[in-house]
Every structure is written in C-alpha cells, then in structure tokens.
C-alpha cells in the first residue's frame, strides 16, 4: 500500500528538536529522538536547519539591565510619523486616490464587462463548486459513494477522490480511532500539494481500512496558498489527543485562508 502511517519522527515538535540540540532532553526522549533521526531524512534536515540558524544568528542583545531598571522605551515615532510609515495605510491611501480618479471612467467604459464577470461569478456559485472529498467502495459489481456518518467495515477497500473547487493546493489525510494519522495526498510529505483542477480527481491508489476502532475521519484541506503538509499532519495528530468526540467532530485550527472539510465514517463494531 502506498499510504504510509505517519511515523513519530514527523510528529516531533520544534521545541523538542531545539531541546535535543541544547542537550536538555530527558534520557527517554533523547533515545526516542535519536531513533527517529536515524529513520527520517526530513527530521535530519530540520535539525541541520536549526544548527545552521544557530551559527548564523547575529542579533545583538539590547542592554537589558539598563532597560529593566527604567520604564521600557525605544524610539517611538509620533502618531503621524507612525501613520505615514505604515506601508499598508500608505498603499491604501494611494489606492483610494487612484480609485476616486479612475472610477467614473471605469464605470462608464466597463459596464458590460462588469456584468459579464458578475454573471460568471454567479454561475460559479450556482454550480456550487466547492472543494469536496469523495469516498467510494465496491459493493458487488457496483461502486457506491460512501457518505458522511455512514458505517464501514474493517478492512474495507475504498477509493478516495477530490474536487478542488478552484483551490490551488490541498492535502488529504485521515484520522482513525487509534489516533493514527495517514497521509493520502500528496503521497509523500515532501511532494507537491498542487491540486488537479479538472473536475473530480481520483487518487492514484485505493486504500484499505485497517482494524482501528470507532471511526475513520477523512480531511480535505485546501488553500490558494501553499500548504505545509507537516504542519497539517501534526495538528491532525494533536486533534486526536483531545478525545474521541473532538477527534470525530472538532475543527482543525488552520486559519481563515485555509478551508477544511471532512467526512466521518463510523466503523462497524468488532464482532
């Protein structure tokens, strides 16, 4: 099977790696990290990156003792200075001026274009193209879609697919009743998360459910900006530790520019 269970090395938080380099890990944790380092190239790369960053760190320490004994003060520009040095505000002002001067022309000349674009947006919304995750299983000679909250059996083979809904990047992973996180798309953590935008896209390989109890929840995370697979998986794993109810229905905390949808499959009780 092409879907590897997430190994511990990929779940090691940054602080633990910092503590590894600083020599502040407990013996047990140290052994765990050393073992993970032997098995994971990406983890070795993360450690090397921290070491390089340490070597290049050159920010001088402010005279903290002086500062601590006085009210904290740094150069503080006046309000107006602050106002105009804020690039956001300056850009916003310039943009406003441009809009004020040009808007009558744009309005007169591009009314029909505006209508066309609006119609197009309206059509897109009407068609309801939102990111979707699709799950299918074979029942006899038929391929049936498995819907949210349906029951599935252990070791049942399923096929995953997605509709990008116009989003550029995406990650598909699942969380099971043992708290295990499995990456389905991209196939490797280091691979591109760019989505296929042509309608419904099936993942390259079918996936066999294992004997994990209670549930299997599939997440489809999408964004117009590149997504860090490692971060997404780490947060999925963290969600699982909040207990079954949260893992089955709670959101991942990802920020507003990232969309998440999920489909929960309930596992048949063990015979």
């Amino acid at each position: 099977m092409n879907h590897s269970k997430m190994i511990n090395s990929e779940q090691i938080p940054e602080l633990v790696l910092e503590q590894y380099i600083l020599g502040e890990l407990s013996q047990a944790k140290l052994i765990e990290v050393q073992q993970a380092l032997l098995n994971s190239e990406s983890l070795r790369a993360r450690v090397a990156k921290i070491r390089r960053s340490n070597e290049n760190f050159s920010l001088p320490l402010r005279q903290t003792i002086d500062l601590a004994s006085e009210p904290y003060s740094t150069h503080s520009p006046s309000n107006w200075e602050n106002f105009f040095s804020n690039r956001n505000i300056s850009l916003a002002l310039i943009s406003c001026l441009i809009v004020i001067f040009l808007s009558p022309m744009l309005t007169l000349e591009n009314t029909s274009l505006h209508q066309d674009i609006s119609q197009e947006s309206y059509d897109i919304r009407l068609k309801g193209i939102q990111p979707q995750i699709k799950i299918y299983r074979q029942v006899g000679n038929n391929i049936d879609q498995v819907l949210h909250d349906e029951m599935v059996g252990h070791f049942e083979k399923i096929q995953l697919g997605y509709i990008s809904g116009g989003k550029k990047y995406g990650v598909v992973f699942s969380l099971d009743g043992r708290g295990e996180v499995t990456l389905h798309y991209p196939e490797k953590e280091s691979a591109s998360t760019v989505l296929d935008k042509s309608g419904e896209h099936s993942l390259a390989y079918a996936y066999e459910l294992d004997d994990a109890p209670l549930y299997e929840r599939f997440f489809f995370i999408t964004s117009d900006e590149p997504i860090s697979v490692e971060k997404i998986l780490r947060r999925g794993k963290a969600l699982a530790t909040e207990g079954v109810e949260v893992a089955k229905s709670g959101d991942l905390f990802l920020g507003e520019a990232v969309d998440q949808i999920s489909v929960l499959l309930n596992k048949e009780p063990n015979q």
């Binding site: 938080p13 780490r234 530790t241 909040e242």
Partner: peptide
C-alpha cells in the same frame, strides 16, 4: 497544541 502540534501529554 493547535499550532505547534504538541499532544496533550506533551
């Protein structure tokens, strides 16, 4: 927990 991905135990 939610951003860095520490487990509850960690």
């Amino acid at each position: 927990h939610w951003v860095d991905g520490f487990s509850l135990k960690e």
